[in-house]
């Protein structure tokens, strides 16, 4: 009898600790979709805007603006999808999506991401295009690792993978486009599928 009460105490401690410090896990499906958006965006850029992938894209040119527009569209679509699917999941589990932990999650995610974004823009303005793909992957990876403290799941491994791909990308200049597809497209789909199957199982 006594030990049952103590077991309940332990369960309650665990529950309170996780509910008060960890944000609900992101839905796996949103990862898959983010990957698909990224690949779609890249395909559009490849077919219509980069007939010759090795030719220089000049700042402020029509091509350049379209690529930036595609990038922003992919980012916004992924974010909105993640938000909608995650809040749907939260509702099902009777959890609140917007609380202190979510705020901390967002802040910790945005610090490296915004830093990287500003850094890339500064470099672009001084005609340094070469490492853009690599920098995006690295800073995105760091943002994921930083935010992972506030999520359930294994998002930090996705972060590590993005950082590694970003570093390899830095060693192979000229292939940034392909590494970008690998990191933002394929990795998201793989990670999202793993999460999705896990969700279905348990």
């Amino acid at each position: 009898m006594e030990s049952k009460k103590y077991l309940n105490d332990i369960i309650q401690i665990k529950d309170m600790m996780s509910r008060s410090s960890r944000f609900i896990s992101l839905s796996g499906l949103s990862g898959i979709l983010a990957g698909i958006y990224a690949i779609t965006g890249a395909v559009i850029a490849y077919i219509f805007l980069l007939p010759d992938i090795n030719s220089d894209v000049i700042l402020h040119s029509w091509n350049f603006r379209m690529i930036v527009a595609i990038l922003i569209a992919v980012a916004i679509l992924s974010f909105v999808t993640a938000y909608l699917l995650t809040s749907r999941k939260a509702k099902k589990n009777n959890e609140k999506i917007w609380d202190d932990t979510t705020k901390r999650l967002l802040i910790n995610f945005l610090i490296p991401l915004v830093t990287g974004g500003i850094y890339i823009l500064i470099k672009l303005n001084s005609q340094h295009y070469g490492l853009t793909g690599s920098l995006m992957l690295i800073f995105y990876g760091l943002a994921l690792v930083n935010a992972s403290k506030y999520t359930i799941g294994n998002i930090k491994y996705l972060g590590y993978a993005e950082i590694i791909i970003g570093l390899i990308c830095a060693a192979f200049p000229g292939y940034g486009f392909w590494f970008w597809i690998l990191g933002f497209g394929l990795l998201h789909i793989i990670y999202g599928s793993l999460m999705y199957f896990k969700e279905q199982k348990g």
Binding site: D9, Q12, I13, K14, M16, M17, S20, S21
Partner: peptide
């Protein structure tokens, strides 16, 4: 117990 659990993390 709940208060302490929350303040631990």
């Amino acid at each position: 117990l709940g208060i302490m659990s929350i303040l631990m993390v």
